[in-house]
């Protein structure tokens, strides 16, 4: 499979009142055609910033500065003019967000919004576009789409809204779909439905999908590969099976341990990673995770680790424990 999206050393910095803050610090990854890539991490790790940087959604005149490369089928998106970028957004890359209620414009019907998305990139009549909108709604599993197309976002249930947003994202048959926490705001049964839909669409349409989530369960079920991010950096990446079988980075291990399973001892407290995520500006000289890491050494505090390759193909970890590569030593 070829690379659909290749991100090289992406750095995104914001101008804040406290000075310049680098939310994404040298992130590199690929999404292959038709692949579902999961990006996992806690709030504030930079996963949303990464996805919005790819789409260049931030206010570039004042707020943000991008460095590095974002290659979509070989074209560096970061070098495009705003006008050129506009024809990429919604067309080649589409995005769906977490809360469909606040992400859809409340004063326009969903049909209207889908029609707008279509007509922004294709020269067809409103009538034609509306017909397509109806079909898109049908595609995403909304019953009686002919009626629903004239509904306002607040008139639909949570699950319907999310489907509508997916329909909106698909309106121009994008090559890459970025789904930023698409199921976080939904209840469990609906979650499952939506994820099934996304997987189905991935298979049907051959779309590449970047699935951003903090939910490891979802990642396990749907993604082929996964990236773990922490404080603006990738700390571990690899095939899903491998990561879950052999979580290597202390953070990843901690994450997986934190998820209660049916085997968890209910009489004991749930496992949490000790400490809290520090502010970006407080990131020190060494490994960013060191002050929460049970296995931190002096080296960890003073030098920055790189991503080291593991035995398994594509599995890389940013931790001095694996500097020499090879299998994962649990130095406990």
């Amino acid at each position: 499979m070829e690379n659909l999206l290749k991100v090289k050393e992406l750095k995104t910095s914001f101008q804040t009142l406290r000075g310049e803050v680098t939310a994404v610090d040298g992130v590199s990854f690929e999404v292959k055609k038709g692949e579902i890539l999961g990006i996992v991490g806690e709030s504030g790790c930079g996963k949303s910033v990464t996805s919005q940087s790819i789409m260049r959604l931030y206010n570039e005149k004042e707020l943000v500065k991008y460095e590095g490369e974002v290659l979509l089928e070989g074209n560096n998106l970061l070098k495009l003019s705003e006008k050129e970028m506009r024809s990429v957004r919604g067309n080649d890359i589409a995005m769906i967000f977490q809360d469909a209620l606040s992400s859809l414009n409340p004063v326009f019907t969903i049909g209207n919004q889908i029609v707008e998305a279509i007509r922004l990139h294709e020269k067809i009549s409103k009538k034609e576009a509306k017909k397509r909108a109806v079909e898109l709604l049908r595609l995403t599993g909304i019953p009686i789409p002919e009626k629903r197309v004239d509904a306002y976002p607040h008139e639909l249930s949570g699950g319907m809204r999310q489907r509508a947003m997916i329909a909106l994202a698909l309106s121009c048959q994008p090559k890459l779909l970025i789904a930023d926490e698409p199921t976080t705001a939904l209840d469990v049964t609906i979650q499952a439905q939506i994820m099934d839909l996304i997987v189905e669409l991935n298979q049907k349409m051959g779309m590449g999908i970047m699935l951003i989530t903090h939910d490891l369960g979802v990642v396990a079920h749907t993604c082929q590969r996964v990236i773990v991010m922490y404080l603006g950096q990738i700390v571990e990446e690899g095939m899903v099976d491998e990561i879950f079988k052999n979580p290597s980075h202390p953070y990843t291990k901690g994450l997986i341990k934190s998820v209660p399973t049916t085997n968890t001892d209910v009489s004991r407290k749930l496992y949490t990673i000790k400490g809290v995520v520090p502010l970006l500006s407080e990131a020190g000289e060494g490994c960013r995770f060191c002050n929460r890491c049970e296995m931190a050494t002096e080296k960890c505090r003073t030098s920055k680790p790189h991503l080291y390759s593991m035995k398994n193909e594509g599995h890389r970890v940013r931790c001095f424990l694996y500097e020499k590569g090879g299998d994962c030593h649990e130095a406990k």
Binding site: M55, R86, F97, E116, L120, M165, L168
Partner: peptide, 14 residues
């Protein structure tokens, strides 16, 4: 500052 403005931009609106 709302989300739907972000969506609009993500659609490619001017």
């Amino acid at each position: 500052n709302t989300e739907y403005i972000k969506t609009a931009k993500a659609k490619g609106a001017s």
